[in-house]
Design a binder for these strands. Structure first.
Length: 574
RNA sequence: CGGGAUGUGGCGCAGUUGGUAGCGCGCGACGUUUGGGACGUCGAUGCCGCAGGUUCAAGUCCUGUCAUCCCGACCA
């Protein structure tokens, strides 16, 4: 490809809208163009990168015996009504009607389509297991797109669905996907990727992992143990608590006029915040009724864990009404209004002497022991993990909290969809059963942006050879000079004939501009052809990551360059 | 959906107490240049987001609306 024929321009400045590095560079470098919020067109360089990522994914999917299929983007609402998600999913799913008044949806994920495709065909246990996948456009009407390609509304995704006759079999495939994903990330050049245990959210099912690329701009928070490798999304990370029982004390009611916050209580009693039983008030989404979480004063409530425990949606209480029976600022577990649900975090378990509210204006209790003064309660883990928390696996207090971008996920779905959509097969014993499903996704555009985010400098992206839009860029520093152009043109032609992907900057511009653009193209191997070099009978060859800078004699340069490309490609081989 | 901000040429921006729009980059032509975003001369590009209103006069003031971005909520 000659730059003179390439559509797209490169900018000195990024639009002021761009805040994160990959977004800036991909706009500045002429990779993407925004059309609407979270909706982008890709220019040729970005399209080429996406295609390479897709092909690596294809190779790895095919390798684990997944077969590529294609589902429709537009599906009838009725199919989604079968699974129940037509109503359970909110406005993230785009819905519309056709000219006949039929309700349709835009595909945001394809479990329903996968079941639809397979359910009448895979009617015998002998036809299991099997895995299907597609690489296709999805539309999700995100409430808030952000960060260029990091979080968009329309995007290309590889989504795979596996079907099994037993949990063990699902787990086998799940493990193969896990390994395939690790290979995919290595091959596309994503470096800091960890798999974390995650919340299954609306997908349903039990076990799931998210593959996270660690970066400060990540939207997810992760708890990671550097000692034993335990890692989990903050949403589900368990929190081990070192509880010190302390001295047994008598329950005493103490006047605490106007002392409402943990801060103020700390000051008032002059004791550590770990000695308080903090009350956090939530409301159920369905009827706004209240529930109260009691947790140790130094900890925060993890709302996702709370939701998962309750099995329903809740939100932090907006206003606490008079008639609720809640005395804001003085809430405690003793003598709490019987109509209120209380949840006890396990951080309170076994502590002998706690300070808590007395459910009476301006009074607190001291010396409270839950078992003794409230009775037997179920302790649950709803605390948010914090830096330095105790690892639930190895028991060392070394948990670190990091940010990550989700660049893939794998779910064990169970029979949620096959049951709801009445997909059955006849088992060996002649009994009709619902197949067990797994699903597995990778966002292509997000992966591209993530690699850019992690592999760049202030001048532009540094694309790994495996996904670079072109493998070699030739910079003809003096295209008006016949001798120089003869060398550059010849090299371009020879390399292309040898199957090397070449971007040829044949423009008549000053070297400074050409180099600045080359940095934005981020192509791994750069070949500079200039009058100076030609006089010396050489071309100058360097890598974008600055690890190599050398000269090759003009005669034989093509072969040397081809070998260099092959060598660099080797690093990312499957 | 809450909070904050911004809409002026392709990009970055300026535009005073209201007086009819400018700078830098980029773009075109010519010339001089040529190893990290050159210089000179000439030139093109604006429904000042949109719709109302106030005014002799609105980029500027008022009202509404749309769009985009950031923080949060949400998120397969």
């Amino acid at each position: 490809m000659k730059v003179t024929a390439l559509l797209g321009e490169r900018f000195k400045n990024a639009p002021s809208d761009c805040t994160i590095e990959s977004h800036k560079l991909m706009v500045r470098g002429g990779y993407i163009k925004n059309m609407a919020s979270g909706i982008y067109s890709l220019y040729a360089p970005a399209k080429r990168i996406a295609k390479k990522i897709e092909n690596i994914i294809r190779e790895e999917m095919d390798r684990i015996d997944a077969q590529e299929v294609m589902f429709p983007v537009v599906m009838p609402a009725s199919l989604w009504e079968e699974s129940g998600r037509y109503t359970s999913i909110g406005s993230e799913m785009a819905r519309f009607t056709d000219r006949g008044g039929n309700r349709l949806v835009l595909g945001m994920t394809h479990e329903e389509a996968a079941v639809h495709l397979a359910r009448n065909t895979a009617s015998s246990y002998t036809q299991y297991p099997f895995t299907i996948y597609q690489i296709q456009t999805k539309f999700r009407d995100e409430p808030r797109a952000r960060g260029g390609l990091i979080r968009v509304r329309e995007f290309t995704m590889k989504d795979a669905y596996s079907f099994h006759t037993s949990q063990e079999d699902l787990e086998k495939t799940y493990a193969r996907f896990y390994e395939a994903y690790e290979r995919i990330y290595r091959r596309v050049g994503a470096k800091n990727v960890v798999a974390v245990k995650s919340d299954s959210g609306m997908m349903g099912g039990s076990i799931s992992h998210e593959f996270m690329l660690l970066t400060d701009i990540g939207e997810d928070t992760l708890a990671i143990c550097p000692e034993c490798g335990y890692s989990a999304n903050m949403e589900v990370a368990s929190c081990e608590i070192d509880n010190e029982a302390g001295e047994v004390e008598e329950l005493k009611k103490v006047s605490t006029p106007g002392v409402k916050t943990i801060e103020a209580l700390k000051e008032f009693f002059g004791i550590d915040e770990k000695k308080f039983a903090k009350a956090v008030v939530y409301q159920r989404n369905k009827d706004d009724s209240y529930l109260i979480v009691f947790i140790r004063g130094d900890l925060e409530v993890n709302e996702t864990k709370l939701r998962n425990y309750l099995g329903e949606e809740v939100h932090p209480a907006a206003v606490i009404t008079e008639e609720s029976g809640i005395v804001a600022g003085f809430i405690g577990p003793i003598g709490l209004d019987g109509g209120l649900t209380a949840v006890f975090d396990k951080s309170l378990e076994g502590i002998n002497s706690l300070v808590c509210g007395a459910n009476e204006q301006d009074f607190h209790y001291t010396g409270m022991n839950v078992e003794r003064d409230v009775g037997k309660v179920d302790y649950v883990d709803v605390a948010k993990v914090f830096e330095g928390a105790v690892c639930p696996v190895c028991g060392k207090p070394v948990i670190t909290v990091k940010r990550g971008i989700e660049i893939g996920n794998i779910f064990q779905l169970g029979t949620k969809y096959t049951k709801a959509m009445n997909m059955t097969y006849l088992d060996r014993d002649g009994e009709a059963k619902n197949p067990i499903m797994g699903c597995y996704g990778i966002g292509v555009g997000r992966l591209m942006a993530s690699v850019c985010e992690e592999s760049c400098d202030k001048y532009g992206p540094i694309w790994p050879m495996s996904i670079a839009p072109w493998q070699v860029e030739i910079c003809n520093l003096r295209s008006t000079d016949e001798a120089v152009s003869r060398v550059a043109d010849g090299l371009y032609e020879t390399l292309q004939n040898d199957g090397v992907e070449v971007l040829y900057d044949d423009r008549d511009i000053r070297p400074g501009s050409m180099f600045a653009d080359a940095d934005l193209f981020g192509i791994p191997v750069r070949v500079v052809v200039s009058p100076k070099n030609c006089d010396a009978g050489v071309v100058e060859v360097s890598t974008r990551d600055k690890s190599i800078k050398t000269e090759f004699a003009i005669d034989g340069a093509a072969e040397e360059i081809r070998a260099l490309v092959a060598k660099l490609l080797e690093e990312y081989k499957g």
